[in-house]
């Protein structure tokens, strides 16, 4: 008898907990998101970006940046074909899906799967820039490199600018045919 009682209780708890389970997962909204995000995992030529997440939630909807992972139901007719029922993801961070070692041998090997649909998923660096710059161009946000992040010493060296800027006479240039 005791085991049957336990069974019923367990069932009841299971069903009960299902009722309170977040439906299809869309429990997170902009208010639950962090105020700011430090985007600096790839920082090399440029320093990290101090991203004001709270400010951007007023401008863009969640799915404009997070796709089908959080914030709203999938509406894009192309994405909905597969992601109509995938619900909210546990991880919503860009780096959870977008590879930080894009074009490495290992990364390219993943494309060998003949059934893979997302053969064109940008790496992490491009995911940031395509998303941010793409929107900023349309919405009139800042688009210059140093509008969002400061150049580092390594960056100055690579771009040969700042203290690594070429001396006015440096560079053989175009064999004396320079037009300036």
């Amino acid at each position: 008898m005791c085991t049957r009682k336990m069974y019923h209780l367990t069932m009841a708890m299971a069903v009960g907990s299902m009722l309170f389970w977040p439906q299809a997962g869309w429990s997170m909204d902009a208010a639950d998101a962090p105020e700011t995000v430090e985007i600096n995992s790839l920082s090399k030529s440029y320093g990290g970006v101090h991203f004001d997440h709270a400010m951007h939630t007023g401008i863009a909807s969640c799915e404009q940046c997070h796709h089908h992972t959080t914030g709203a139901e999938v509406t894009n007719s192309n994405c909905i074909r597969c992601h109509a029922k995938t619900g909210e993801e546990d991880s919503v961070s860009c780096k959870d899906c977008h590879s930080s070692d894009r074009f490495s041998k290992k990364d390219l090997l993943k494309l060998e799967d003949p059934k893979l649909y997302h053969i064109d998923k940008p790496g992490l660096k491009a995911a940031y820039h395509l998303n941010c710059v793409g929107c900023h161009q349309k919405a009139g946000g800042p688009t210059g490199c140093q509008d969002c992040h400061t150049i580092t010493e390594a960056g100055e060296k690579m771009f040969q600018t700042g203290k690594f800027a070429p001396a006015p006479t440096a560079g053989s240039g175009h064999g004396g045919h320079s037009s300036h």
Binding site: C145, Q160, F164, P166, A170, G171
Partner: peptide, 13 residues
């Protein structure tokens, strides 16, 4: 940088 080419006339930025 990679090909160790001579410095440019103007910075790359």
């Amino acid at each position: 940088q990679e090909q160790k080419l001579p410095p440019p006339e103007k910075p790359f930025d």
